[in-house]
């Protein structure tokens, strides 16, 4: 996505209360995933903002928590998730991102040479994505105020959303979008996880900033 359309996290622009910091957002995502009965692979908070220039409503990266899955371990051991060229590309990107974070003078890290799994890659790529005016599954949920809970690769593949289609290609089998104040909470899993009222309540409890 073009850089200009991906807003930086800003409590002021999104109407999120000042006390709702990046740190507390991360804690809530962590609690949601680690406290869940089911094995969710990741959670992402898509944050809403308005592009003043274009008057467009945008959902952009707010924060995310990646837990991983059993597939990560299996694929890393067998290194079979993608072609050699694709793996080289992913590792190169990861090394560059690591240099960006740690500094170009940092010593080489052996973890950067390990297989970058499909779900890790899907999560990383998510950081560059945004949804304008109700586009995509997160955008639709935000616009309509209705959660969406999609289970099964076949259903993800026919969802009217490129992100959902991409998710199933990368091994995800469940994807959930729940509209919350100031954005959308997305959950993804490589397992088949069916609708749970408990999980919906947990999302609402953790991401209702008024409470």
């Amino acid at each position: 996505a073009p850089e200009a359309h991906v807003p930086a996290f800003s409590s002021a622009s999104a109407g999120v209360p000042e006390y709702f910091t990046q740190e507390s957002l991360q804690q809530r995502l962590h609690m949601l995933i680690e406290g869940a009965r089911d094995s969710w692979t990741y959670a992402i908070f898509w944050q809403s903002s308005v592009d003043v220039g274009f008057g467009a409503s945008i959902l952009g990266w707010g924060d995310g928590y990646y837990k991983g899955c059993e597939e990560d371990k299996r694929r890393r051991r067998n290194a079979t998730s993608s072609s050699v060229a694709e793996q080289e590309h992913r590792k190169r990107v990861l090394r560059e991102l690591n240099s960006l974070i740690s500094g170009s003078g940092s010593s080489p890290d052996s973890a950067m040479e390990e297989e970058v799994t499909d779900t890790e890659w899907f999560f990383l790529v998510s950081m560059t994505q945004s949804f304008v005016n109700g586009s995509g599954l997160p955008g639709q949920s935000f616009l309509t105020g209705a959660p969406s809970w999609i289970v099964g690769k076949d259903r993800l593949s026919i969802a009217p959303c490129d992100r959902a289609k991409q998710a199933q290609v990368f091994g995800l089998q469940s994807m959930v979008c729940v509209p919350v104040e100031s954005g959308v909470l997305e959950l993804g899993s490589t397992e088949l996880i069916f609708h749970s009222a408990d999980m919906m309540n947990q999302v609402k409890a953790l991401f209702n900033f008024n409470s």
């Binding site: 996290f9 990046q22 990266w61 707010g62």
Partner: peptide, 26 residues
């Protein structure tokens, strides 16, 4: 570097750190 919004930079740093732990535990 400056063009990368702070939120994503923080998320990325956390992801890379956690990934090192996951890889070493595999």
């Amino acid at each position: 570097d400056a063009a990368v919004p702070q939120a994503r930079k923080a998320s990325l740093a956390r992801f890379l750190e956690k990934r090192k732990e996951r890889v070493s535990n595999t």
